[in-house]
Design a protein around this nucleic acid. Structure first.
Length: 190
DNA sequence: GTATGGATGTTCT
DNA sequence: GAACATCCATACT
């Protein structure tokens, strides 16, 4: 699923002064967190924080990392199995004005380059934990049939881990200007 | 582009 | 009380 999600769309419907905004971004970078994977939050079983990881695939697991940054994950297994995909970076497609306003004075390239930045740009926080991402709502996933050629997806180790850090479970759109992570990991094969 | 250190809040031991 | 799926500013190459 982590590989599949590269090239798909994230859609966010958001109330703004005077109406509603639609924010869109194309996923360019993901990471997989598997069962039996010491880096997966579900590794030691279900807790109040990680329970959304155990929902049927296609639900949001949102949590706060380092006290400052929200992370958007997609549950990826059948009910009761804690496994998921972290969405790490987006190419902004629509609603850039809103994203810029939310992110402050940063280059467009940095609007959603990194999981915490992505969540900040799309106003994602705990309120969206557990939502169904497979149908239109406040937050959902889409597919416009574009930009997902498997041959154009590179792999690397995951970023920022101390445990199970050597597995090739990061997936990214090759050559994208919107990737997070050090340049050495973004080469054709990380 | 790369490397470093501090801020931050929640979770679990 | 330690660990943590990060970000930002700063300094340096």
């Amino acid at each position: 699923m982590a590989r599949y999600l590269v090239g798909r769309l994230v859609a966010r419907r958001l109330a703004v002064p005077g109406g509603e905004a639609l924010l869109l971004g194309r996923i360019v970078e993901t990471e997989a967190y598997l069962t039996g994977d010491a880096a997966c939050h579900a590794f030691r079983g279900m807790t109040p924080r990680n329970r959304s990881l155990f929902l049927e695939h296609g639900h949001a697991y949102v949590y706060l990392a380092y006290g400052t940054a929200w992370m958007l994950n997609v549950s990826a297994g059948p009910v009761g199995i804690g496994t998921g995909v972290l969405i790490r970076a987006l190419q902004p497609i629509a609603g850039l004005e809103i994203m810029r306003a939310r992110r402050g004075r940063v280059p467009d390239r940095d609007l959603a380059r990194g999981p915490g930045r992505l969540a900040a740009a799309l106003a994602i926080d705990r309120a969206l934990d557990g939502v169904d991402l497979c149908h239109p709502g406040p937050l959902w996933l889409g597919d416009d049939g574009g930009d997902g050629a498997p041959s154009e997806i590179g792999t690397s180790t995951r970023i920022g881990l101390t445990r199970d850090a050597d597995r090739m479970l990061r997936f990214f759109r090759r050559g994208s200007a919107w990737l997070s992570g050090p340049a050495r990991l973004n080469r054709p094969d990380g």
